[in-house]
């Protein structure tokens, strides 16, 4: 029982490395994880935001966020710690 891993311990191990975040809806974000709290609000460096073009849903807009951000945890759906970003066949990868 004692050596069971808590979900947030996995995220803690990802501090200082890249993390891939899938938001509720279609937005995805990749960045360097600096820290987080119990609500899974994240502090990220060098984040890149991928979201569909509102005018043409088949296109993805890639935005580089040049400064540190605090990402609100309440819209986060999935975290991929150590993830280098969207896989090649994903929608977001087309923007790279």
């Amino acid at each position: 029982m004692a050596n069971r891993i808590l979900p947030l311990e996995l995220i803690d191990k990802a501090i200082g490395s890249k993390i891939w975040i899938l938001m509720r809806g279609t937005k995805e974000i990749v960045g360097n994880l600096r820290g987080f709290d119990d609500y899974v609000n994240l502090v990220l460096d060098d984040a890149i935001e991928y979201s569909p073009d509102p005018k043409d849903k088949t296109k993805i807009i890639k935005t580089e966020l040049k400064s540190e951000i605090l990402l609100n945890g309440n819209q986060i759906a999935v975290l991929v710690p150590g993830g280098t970003g969207p896989p090649e066949d994903s929608l977001a990868a087309k923007a790279r």
Binding site: I15, G16, R34, G35, N41, L42, V43, E68, L70
Partner: peptide, 10 residues
């Protein structure tokens, strides 16, 4: 040093 919590940031 590398850690920075949301409250540190704010």
């Amino acid at each position: 040093k590398s850690k920075r919590s949301p409250s540190d940031f704010l």
